[in-house]
């Protein structure tokens, strides 16, 4: 699924136009705990999160996350936007909540890129 398609399904707003590239995104991860992202996210996923602070960007960089969607209309601080531009990670804001947006994207065919506690891919 292309990032533009994800943007459409999320009714999202791009917060970092200069980093927006219409990547093919093959899977998604939803988490508010950054350790969960570091533990479970396979590379090249889109991250859905209700958390909005600079460590989300750092975590995304470490875990090779391709794009971040902030849920429930959360707006990152300017420092975060700057960091995301520097690390070339597109930021998107969506009015939807976690359950709703995970469901919408899953139904549209986006796979889970989470690894469960047995180490298996979902």
């Amino acid at each position: 699924m292309h990032l533009s398609e994800i943007l459409r399904i999320a009714d999202g707003t791009i917060l970092t136009p200069s980093t927006f590239t219409d990547h093919e995104i093959r899977g998604g991860v939803g988490a508010d705990l950054m350790s969960d992202v570091l533990a479970a996210a396979r590379p090249d996923a889109v991250l859905l999160t209700g958390l909005c602070n600079p460590q989300v960007i750092r975590t995304a960089q470490m875990a090779d996350v391709r794009a971040i969607i902030f849920l429930r209309g959360k707006q990152p601080m300017p420092e975060m936007v700057e960091l995301a531009i520097q690390e070339n990670i597109p930021l998107i804001s969506s009015e939807h909540g976690m359950f709703e947006l995970c469901g919408r994207l899953y139904r549209a065919g986006l796979r889970s890129f989470e690894t469960n506690m047995n180490g298996d891919h979902e």
Partner: peptide, 16 residues
Amino acid sequence: RAMGFGAGMGLVNIKR
């Protein structure tokens, strides 16, 4: 915790 840490998974993640 407000930063998304403190889930008690850090050292577990490192080990992995």
